[in-house]
């Protein structure tokens, strides 16, 4: 027999699109009454807190298996937005090619949250902790609209999501292989990710920073990338900070100027727990400390710092 439970008329209906184009049509037809859902972890917290109203319909993206999985492309890795955070952490190609992303995702939520939540949801939130790591890898976002596929650099989308955002669907995250990305000069790739929260684990970030570059054989840095985010601030690359150490040798003097550049450039958001000034200084110190550690002479290739 079938048992039946529930209160009629209180819960949203669940729509299962057959392909990304139909998902976009559903969203276009429903407007604010239809919401794309994958893991649903962030949405549930918004519904429970009252930050967002439960919509009339959930558009279930897990009906679209084409948006799942991690695929190798020529010179790139394409991560499907439906990949669960726990599966991303376990992915060998991600760990081997993009360890800062694996590290950032490993620090999101707790194991049970990572078993539900998807990387697509973390990106689509525009404040997820994976974004700083994705920014230093210069990730591209592949979007599906009802009629076509378009690609946009993550950095550009974060700066300006553009019009009609609700009617397009994240279909992939493309990460170009290093080597080409860091200028191809000899030396070793150096990168780090740091998350600062009010507890050691299972806490939203106050500040996240990610840095990436190449320590060349003559001791100078090339292809430097620096990004910061955390809290309700939309993460961004810090170009002035990058310019301070691009082509330079790390020294106490350059690190002081690097910290000043970060503090002058980064625009965090305050909340009840931490002010913008605290976050600015924390980001400056974390970024300077990360480069200091990465450029220490006794470090080996691929070495990865544990949490501070």
């Amino acid at each position: 027999m079938v048992m039946a439970f529930g209160t009629p008329g209180r819960d949203p209906e669940v729509l299962r699109p057959r392909d990304p184009a139909e998902a976009c049509r559903m969203k276009a037809a429903l407007g604010a009454e239809g919401v794309f859902v994958a893991g649903g972890t962030l949405l549930r917290t918004q519904w429970e807190s009252g930050a967002a109203k439960m919509p009339g319909a959930l558009i279930d993206l897990t009906a679209l298996p084409a948006l799942d999985g991690i695929a190798e492309e020529a010179g790139a890795l394409v991560i499907g937005p439906l990949v669960r955070l726990s599966d991303l952490v376990r992915s060998e190609p991600v760990a081997a090619g993009f360890p800062l992303l694996a590290e950032a995702v490993r620090r999101i939520g707790a194991p049970s949250i990572r078993n539900l939540a998807t990387i697509g949801g973390n990106v689509a939130s525009r404040t997820g902790d994976a974004l700083t790591a994705l920014l230093v890898y210069d990730a591209e976002l592949i979007w599906r609209t009802e009629r076509r596929t378009e690609t946009m650099r993550l950095e550009d989308w974060l700066a300006d999501p553009g019009a009609g955002e609700g009617f397009r669907l994240l279909a992939g995250i493309r990460l170009k292989r290093a080597g080409a990305a860091a200028g191809g000069r000899a030396g070793r790739i150096a990168g780090g990710f740091r998350k600062l929260g009010r507890r050691e684990a299972f806490i939203p970030a106050l500040v996240t920073v990610a840095v990436l570059g190449r320590l060349t054989e003559d001791g100078t840095l090339a292809g430097v990338r620096v990004a910061a985010g955390g809290g309700s601030a939309v993460p961004s690359r810090l170009r002035a900070a990058e310019a301070v150490i691009e082509g330079a040798r790390v020294s106490p003097e350059t690190l002081v100027r690097l910290g000043e550049a970060v503090a002058g450039e980064y625009r965090p958001a305050s909340d009840a727990f931490a002010g913008a000034e605290y976050r600015r200084r924390a980001a400056a110190n974390l970024i300077a400390a990360e480069w200091f550690t990465l450029c220490a002479p006794d470090r080996k290739e691929g070495e990865h710092d544990p949490d501070p």
């Binding site: 079938v2 048992m3 039946a4 529930g6 209160t7 009629p8 819960d11 209906e13 959930l58």
Partner: peptide, 10 residues
């Protein structure tokens, strides 16, 4: 094995 008739988002 169970079969339940429930609002799907419950």
């Amino acid at each position: 094995p169970v079969r339940l008739a429930v609002p799907p988002a419950r």
